[in-house]
Design a binder for these strands. Structure first.
Lengths: 356, 356
DNA sequence: CTGTTAGCGCCTTCAA
DNA sequence: TTGAAGGCGCTAACAG
């Protein structure tokens, strides 16, 4: 036997109720609601009055059947718990809300299967568009990439780029970020500069590594595989990765970490190894948050334009939705990063080499 | 003239397409999709085949018209940029996804008008339920409270309680949190303990203050208005509030901050005043995040069960949705907090009184 | 086990 | 300026 919804949830008025009460047809009601077609002022007022009296709101899902628009967009992120993404979300929300869109937020936990699942749901729910921050690609995912490309809903890629041609996307200048971080260290005299980065097949990290390599090359410093550590983007992973760097005979005098969570892990590892930052070792991190300018050591970091990334991506998506065609939107927008110099990098000194 | 959607967005197959291709009626197709009614194995396979071939997905908005369920819920938060809320979101998402729900996330910026706006939209979009973390109440909002109470969609209140009777809600033990923080300071010998809290009419902060008062009373320490500072929950506000405390003749030897952002602001203010924590002044903060156990001074804080708050609230909401009645769900669930003792509190020493 | 059919709430020609 | 009627894609009786 089916339960009844309790009385306090009275059913909502519908358009016929309004029509009846106002003594007009539903077509007329629809016209005043949507400002479509002409309605005599007096009848319009009658309708408005009825709407107010019954506190009527149009039923969006029903309306969708005709209009084919849900006024909602989907946003798929790897991990909303990484403070980078809430800022991106807010940026996006700030622009879509102007157009009365609303956002379904989906967390994939860096899992492409989860991403697929969510994309299917978003498709079924008929969101008007999707902002996608991709999870790392799994090997043998060609089929999925094909599906992505042919999805019935416009997608704007954000931050992380898939292996796809001709897609609309908004990204940060990761090569520039990696380059700036490494150059800064070089300018301070460091020569043995390590990098801790993420092993996922993600453009962002590959590019930051590229920037690192580029800067070293420009200074004729050979790239050593021993100074390049890769792992999952977690605090724990950085903690377990760090010792292989810190216990080297030629321990690096500076480390560039390309990821926020791993930066925290590295700092923990330094402490555990009894190393002072910046006295014993310099660190450049990634991503900039409020507390970083307060607690010690104050991190020198590559700051990303998080809010702006969200804004730009949402703006692009809305443009596409407005045209209802994406033919001329196969462009990739790149926003630049900024090195925030604080206190976690010291000048290279020979005597830094004391054993830990 | 209306634009056409570009060709790459081919229209989706619908149930009649499947029926035609499988050589059955749409009713049968519907049956296999929804596992309702019996279908002969062989025809079921035919249908499944057709579905796969046309990569058909049911159209949720259309389906809603019949089922009255959108399988989406709304979550309204004050500021997703405060790391407290992403954790709550993840907790909620982790349980609703089990039931195939999806979440529309709405940011109100602590603005009750914005909250009203979003609630109206969620109502129009026919979300099945709402998780609401309320913005501070404006004065003269009785009408809105009335509307809230009579909303056509079940709400579970989260973290912050409105002035309403008989509502389902999940909250943290804020009195307990304030009490634990203050007691800890008292145990360390502090007597001049100040509190920096939020002036919004929000249960959470009122209760944390209550806990503070309760602890002091138990130790027969008079409550001084001079030691109670209230303001907006921002970094800047804490910075501008702090000097009135730090420059007092009887400067407090310990401060309890009931809000994450204000904690950051206070630490900044201490630094600006040339005060060391914990040497010159002890601090207990609120909310616990990864970096707090790494950077210095390591904050002693009241940790809230963020993830669990989200889980519990979502669980309660789903229960309500399952019954389609909230008659027996007028309960308030309270989860406890935990004091994380780290390094920002020192033992009270007389000589702390040196001028800044 | 399967098909026919009547709506769900709304928008939108087409007529008047 | 207004109304009547069809249909969007789907589910759920009701028949067969």
């Amino acid at each position: 036997m089916k339960h009844e919804r309790s009385k306090r949830f009275h059913k909502m008025a519908k358009i016929t109720d309004i029509a009846k009460r106002a003594g007009v047809s539903i077509a007329t009601v629809s016209r005043v609601i949507n400002h479509s077609g002409n309605v005599k002022k007096s009848t319009k007022e009658k309708v408005l009055k009825a709407i107010k009296e019954l506190s009527y709101t149009p039923n969006f899902p029903a309306r969708y059947l005709k209009t084919k628009r849900t006024l909602t967009i989907g946003m798929v992120v790897p991990d909303i718990t990484n403070p980078f993404f809430p800022m991106v979300f807010r940026g996006a929300e700030s622009v879509v809300k102007q157009e009365n869109y609303t956002i379904i937020l989906c967390n994939t936990f860096e899992d492409e299967y989860e991403e697929m699942r969510y994309l299917s749901i978003l498709e079924a729910k008929k969101v008007d568009g999707i902002l996608l921050i991709k999870a790392p690609a799994r090997s043998g995912n060609e089929q999925y990439m094909q599906k992505l490309k042919n999805l019935s809903i416009p997608i704007v890629y954000l931050d992380r780029l898939p292996k796809l041609q001709d897609i609309p996307a908004v990204v940060a200048d990761n090569v520039g970020g990696g380059y700036a971080a490494t150059s800064h260290l070089l300018k301070l005299g460091h020569k043995r500069i390590a990098i801790i980065t993420v092993h996922y097949p993600l453009t962002v990290h590959r590019e930051r590594l590229q920037g690192y390599v580029k800067a070293l090359r420009e200074h004729d410093i050979p790239i050593s595989r021993l100074y390049i550590k890769k792992g999952a983007s977690t605090i724990e992973e950085a903690i377990s990765l760090a010792p292989s760097l810190l216990n080297m005979k030629n321990r690096p005098t500076a480390i560039f970490v390309t990821n926020h969570k791993m930066t925290i892990g590295l700092m923990r590892a330094l402490e555990m190894a009894g190393l002072q930052c910046p006295e014993d070792i310099s660190v450049v991190g990634y991503d900039d948050f409020d507390w970083e300018n307060v607690f010690h050591p104050r991190l020198t970091v590559v700051a990303q334009p998080t809010y702006q990334l969200g804004q730009a991506a949402a703006g692009l998506l809305i443009e596409i939705l407005r045209d209802r065609t994406d033919s001329m939107h196969h462009k990739i927008v790149m926003l630049s990063t900024e090195l925030k110099i604080r206190e976690s990098c010291g000048i290279y000194r020979q005597n830094k080499l004391r054993k830990p």
